[in-house]
Write a protein that binds this DNA or RNA. Structure first.
Lengths: 467, 467
DNA sequence: ACATTTGTCGCTTGACATTTT
DNA sequence: CAAAATGTCAAGCGACAAATG
């Protein structure tokens, strides 16, 4: 029996010790999960310290450790040595971001599409592919990682971004997320840690969670992740990898300048980290900004998986992404591709190839950049921001909120007013001071007029909501 | 210090205690992994019992438990309470089966393709799709799980196999393997157990391994998995799911008759298992064999994920598979799809849709069945087998070997003679008496003549090899 | 600067289940 | 059938590391 009675001790969570069945830790964990999912424990709540709860329940404190650990693995809570254990901000709901159907009336500034007005050019290319003499061969099992001429076109495409490799080190997969899943499965194990920006790609957070890969948020500034902070976390935790989007961070629109890339590369090299470089926005940065330099793959070819999706730059509906990697990763990545894809549609890859080789892809990019410029101009007029805040051509913007607001409440409030946007909480990679931003997609409306209307409604309602 | 000296005790593995660093269990596990990967410990070797090795190394026996456990999770070893711990049959090499390039001279009876002679029909359908008024809309982000009319066509297609559902419970994904990955990620957790046939789909074994889902092999007879054996394993271990290919098991060609489906369904219902039903071969069985009945999904709609790929039946290069599921799984599966695919190529799905709606898909199926019949006839002439051995139209056959042979040796011997086939070891889902079979694909050669030549070479060389 | 709070981790203990003999 | 061999698992112990005040 415990020595003291805790009945009126201020503990945030007092599980009923009578309902606990053996094994205690499992029973306790599912009790905790239940209470979080059902909202009895609000996000951010500090749970009782392990020793205290252990005393209360009259078990050893490491039994509590185990129960907490289970819930932490599921992403329900997080623990900070020295300060305590807390309910996760996104514990109760999924942060998965997708293009699911929302009401017709609603203007979608949430899910970031890619100015789909250019798809007529894609349709033309598709028709051209139908005339190829080798059309039939696109429908069989051959060449699971892409046909050689498709890989050559891929390299041709990526050369503009500064990628130099040979076809042996390229694979064609079914989109960026597919590439990320492959990279995580091939190169990491459950329990491994990957350093990420504090705010990062929401679907990457979700995949990591489901593959039990832990994310370690690293502070950054306006030029991206801070090298010394990364270094410190490497020393502190055993960090195995880093995930970066150097050309234009999602959702923060941060572009990492060349000097910072080099500093980060030095840390990554020193600590033998695996870099996952998601360069979907390379086409927005290479050759435009002065200090672009080159992808980090070129600085660390043996430690990097470079991922370049064509969803944003060329066409979103054709699921094509290129993976570039060094010798050390080749076998593992190839095996993962066979295991989870068998192959990627050669037809999709061929249409992208046709677009690249015919020069139409560049035409599309030029158009999209132009649309992005207009959209950003519109945005800046309504939401003035300091010069050089983030990427100038980003397909979405990162809007600081004037006040401390509740993320999901604000989202529903705005949805009710006919606007879908995403609050920063959805992009939170781990514990941390919950700042307040909105990610506002500029690339998902059918026209600039619709975008303008959407932004105006957003502005007006933010004024009303935040006062 | 240990009391006894074990220096000349017959232990199969004597790690050097001096190279062990703390933490012991990690150090020991990587030592063991190294010795297995490098072949110092052959597959099947019995490792020292935990207590014995613990004594030898002067640590507690549960420290050995943990080290062994780690290696077991990686699939390197397996343990049987009461008998001991053993090196896995497939520890050192991957059993991933893919269409990687093999020499031109070689006749491929290994990787099972699907009579690719029908792809000209697919090419025609693709051209038809180019004329659709809504072509451009196939290239955007909309409808991540498939456009409604595509889902309707999917249901139309599967109705012939006995599937009845509505479009809300269907999703279009990128091939069967993609569907399996989604199902495993959505519905299972690391450490969960899934019951499978002793010999099962090799890539499923590999995905399970990488997602840390354990497979429990269940004995079967000529009509498939034995219900009472499944029941017994459910009681013994905590089994969470079952994986079945009822229409034509890969690699065994076993077709589960209706009475057996019902018996199995009863066990699955009783133990609340999740059934993953891979019905890629439905088109070969529905309406052909008398005792087909219906898919198990119809018997257990709330506990089943039904997967129907069009790779074998219609076209392998267009990566399309249909998933059908009940309400209980819908949300989890949808979320997993958004997380790992974002979406599947609408273009690929549309071409398949066109093939189905125009009736060309049935034409393709008829042709493939005809080719399969001829191929099976050829096979039976050269390798006589008892009547009613497995599925009569299977795209591959399961050839019992006359003698106890080494699997990978035989594979290389035959490869050397210009024939690629896969030995049964590649399909082994867990520990078990290693029988000897070859899976001989009948559907991967460019012509029946090539197949005949291949089978003749195979027969002749098996005679020479097995004596 | 230092003690306190708090979480982490590896190892040990002992009860237990299964298989073999 | 009982005893021995063997692997499994939950819980406890204690050293340690990080954050707080």
């Amino acid at each position: 029996m415990p020595i003291n009675s805790f009945t009126d001790y201020p503990m945030s969570w007092k599980p009923d010790r009578d309902v606990l069945k053996r094994p205690f830790y499992l029973s306790l964990a599912s009790l905790l999960e239940h209470d979080i999912i059902n909202g009895y424990l609000a996000p951010g709540t500090k749970l009782p310290p392990q020793r205290e709860l252990a005393d209360f329940l009259d078990v050893n404190f490491t039994t509590i450790t185990r129960a907490y650990k289970l819930c932490e693995l599921k992403g329900l809570i997080y623990a900070i040595t020295g300060s305590g254990t807390f309910v996760s901000p996104n514990a109760a709901r999924s942060i998965t971001i997708s293009k699911d159907r929302i009401s017709k009336e609603c203007i979608d500034l949430g899910f970031a599409e890619s100015f789909e007005q250019t798809n007529s050019i894609v349709a033309e290319a598709a028709k051209k592919v139908m005339e190829k003499s080798y059309l039939e061969q696109l429908f069989n099992y051959n060449e699971p990682t892409g046909i050689v001429h498709q890989k050559a076109a891929a390299l041709n495409w990526m050369r503009a971004f500064g990628i130099h490799a040979n076809t042996e080190h390229v694979a064609i997969v079914s989109g960026a997320l597919n590439a990320l899943t492959i990279a995580l499965l091939a190169l990491f194990e459950p329990g491994n840690r990957i350093a990420v920006d504090k705010y990062t790609y929401a679907n990457f957070i979700e995949i990591s969670k489901s593959l039990r890969v832990k994310l370690v948020p690293i502070p950054g500034d306006e030029h991206g992740m801070l090298p010394h902070e990364l270094e410190q976390q490497c020393l502190q935790w055993g960090v195995h990898g880093v995930f970066l989007m150097p050309s234009c961070g999602n959702p923060t629109t941060v572009m990492i300048p060349d000097y910072r890339k080099k500093e980060l590369a030095a840390v990554i090299r020193k600590h033998h980290l695996i870099l996952i470089e998601d360069d979907v926005h390379a086409f927005l940065s290479a050759g435009i900004t002065d200090d672009y330099g080159q992808p980090m793959y070129q600085l660390l070819p043996d430690q990097t998986v470079y991922i370049c999706s064509t969803s944003k730059s060329i066409c979103s509906g054709l699921r094509v992404a290129y993976m570039v990697f060094g010798d050390a990763f080749q076998e593992k990545i190839m095996r993962a591709i066979f295991n989870i894809n068998v192959k990627t549609s050669s037809l999709d890859a061929e249409i992208i190839t046709e677009l690249i080789l015919s020069g139409k892809a560049n035409e599309i990019v030029a158009k999209k950049k132009q649309l992005a410029q207009s959209a950003n101009l519109l945005y800046t007029e309504l939401f003035p921001q300091p010069l050089h805040t983030g990427h100038p051509l980003s397909f979405y913007r990162w809007l600081p909120l004037p006040d401390k607001v509740n993320g999901s409440q604000l989202e529903s409030y705005l949805l009710d007013k006919g606007i879908r946007v995403f609050h920063s909480d959805r992009f939170l990679s781990g514990a941390g001071t919950p700042d307040n931003y909105l990610r506002v997609a500029l690339s998902s409306t059918n026209s600039l007029e619709e975008l303008k209307r959407g932004l105006e409604i957003l502005k007006e309602n933010l004024r009303l909501y935040c006062g």
